[in-house]
Design a protein around this nucleic acid. Structure first.
Lengths: 337, 337
DNA sequence: TTGTATGCGTTATCAT
DNA sequence: ATGATAACGCATACAA
């Protein structure tokens, strides 16, 4: 069943059917209705490939997600997906693990191969972006929750994110204000140039401002996993009796820490203070509830999708949007002398 | 840059280039290398739409996910995605909320529109499946973590899931064996004919076998949300002093319950026993750790993807696979007299 | 307002 | 082993 069949059945030319399908104005109302009825009746669906081949553009938007198991992104995927869908686009989803470091090449080949109209990247490393990085790409790119280190190429892509340095600085400062001096930090990956790196910088900045020395032993790596964070925290608590606070760079890791504290016969929110990062639901329902840096992930998702849509429609220029985080104080922290 | 350009540059015919691209045997090694070099040099990527138009089949596999925020599915999405990708297919992702009840129509239009090679559905309601439901569909369908009620049409699709009745029966029986008689249950949605309904049946079966009456007041609805579950649990504990155990049909909801117990000045794992469902990581790290029914979600994801791939390759017939769940006993339950 | 004819880039058939 | 050419289904320029 193709456009010609419909045309024959309706007793009209193919172009008329095409015009009906594409809502062109120059069709008599009665003709349009007749054609529409037949399309309906025969369940005709235009061949997308032929359309794309002819028009040389698709209605695909690519979503490139970095990090296999990142609950933080999952919710965002669906928000982005629904906005994209209601704008008439389809979402082509691809994910890569943390090991792939050629993210730019990834985007370009993804785009070329699938003839995308635009791309959103959730996470990823874009360390050495240049003015030419995206030059071979003629579709808009939105990097969301991505930390670019380079100042170059800002005109060639958009971004939506948070100020990781500031967020981590605030969280660490909060712990310091509560009187903590021995503050351990659980990093995601130690070779990560993304969020981990910037947040680590915020932590170091806060320590430095209060003349607290950075201690090697207090820098742990949790691999963004509860389990791993549990292990490293437990080990730390066994070996060191001075530590009074822990800053975990994700809530997933914070939960692992929390349990490690309990299992070390210490009281969370009393012997050890804990701050997480992300603002996932379950930090709120944990016992005791875990203080965390809340990222506006719904807003981030919405902003990204809407921005990309505007960019595709050429309604706006590339933008770099930083959204606010919020330190949510709960029961896992307390004041010490 | 198209196949003709490459052919011209290489000084060969288009068919030769096509043969090279598609790894056809009848090409002299030297010719193949020459063409390959030029393809590489000019960064030529074959036009997918033209290919599809010609071959009348894509390399798209559709993933239809039900339920906007279901962490249980998220991890599975990525596992499925990576298996699909390494088999050379791309994943077209669509999601719907719980309100859409015409899931079969959804699959069919999705498939037709995108010329999919196969579809995996994560969740969803397929209550009145008939032998004809999928008859207009000539691609394999795998329903994962879906509860079909109908016995019809089993030859026309595959499924991967767990025995929800049995799993819920075991969990409830466990609580009963511990001495509990007043066991509340937190359902997902009250009008859900999917997992909730079957698990609810397992719960009822266990109660009936031990001559425990089903109490209206003990049937709560948590909307698959921690927050909502928190509220209904808190209300229950205020109004009723007899309840000694709660069975939450998802870990997300269990976490909400857990906190509600604490906030009602009761001790979880002592005054109130709690069993969750799913086996998400954080039930393990909760304090106290939450007993839960673990679903083998990685295995479910792998099984689904591999099954679909075999079905596409016509290597196997439709199958209906039930995987085992496991009750993981932790600290949130205790024996009462 | 409507129909005819052409070409989008590829693969497959048929020659050579 | 290789090349010419005819589809695939559609949108559109042009003709009517």
């Amino acid at each position: 069943m193709n456009i010609r069949d419909i045309a024959d059945i309706a007793g009209v030319g193919v172009s008329t059917v095409s015009r009906v399908i594409n809502n062109h104005p120059d069709v008599k109302v009665s003709t349009r209705e007749k054609v529409l009825k037949i399309i309906e009746e025969y369940n005709y669906i235009p061949n997308n490939s032929a359309r794309v081949l002819k028009k040389a553009n698709t209605n695909y938007i690519g979503l490139l997600v970095k990090g296999i198991y990142n609950p933080f992104f999952y919710e965002m995927i669906n928000i982005i997906g629904s906005i994209i869908a209601s704008a008439g686009y389809s979402m082509l989803y691809e994910q890569g693990d943390y090991k792939i470091y050629q993210d730019v090449d990834n985007i370009i080949s993804f785009s070329n191969e699938k003839k995308l109209r635009g791309v959103i990247c959730l996470g990823g490393n874009f360390i050495d972006l240049t003015d030419e990085s995206f030059s071979s790409l003629n579709i808009p790119v939105v990097l969301t929750s991505v930390n670019t280190v380079s100042k170059l190429g800002k005109k060639t892509y958009s971004s939506v994110g948070i100020d990781n340095v500031k967020a981590a600085y605030e969280a660490t400062s909060y712990l310091i204000e509560l009187g903590h001096k021995n503050i351990a930090i659980i990093l995601g990956k130690d070779d990560d140039m993304g969020a981990t790196w910037w947040r680590f910088n915020g932590y170091k900045k806060a320590l430095a401002e209060h003349n607290i020395n950075l201690k090697e032993e207090y820098i742990l790596v949790g691999e963004y996993e509860s389990e791993k964070s549990y292990e490293v925290t437990k080990k730390l608590l066994q070996e060191d009796n001075d530590v009074t606070a822990i800053f975990a760079l994700s809530d997933i890791m914070a939960v692992g820490c929390a349990r490690a504290v309990v299992d070390s016969n210490l009281k969370l929110g009393k012997d050890i203070s804990l701050v997480g990062f992300d603002g996932l639901d379950y930090s709120k329902f944990y016992t005791p509830a875990i203080t965390t840096v809340k990222q506006p992930r719904k807003l981030m998702a919405e902003t990204s999708a809407k921005l990309l849509l505007s960019l595709i429609k050429n309604e706006t220029e590339n933008e770099h949007i930083l959204l606010d985080t919020k330190l949510i104080k709960r029961e896992s922290c307390n004041k010490i002398l």
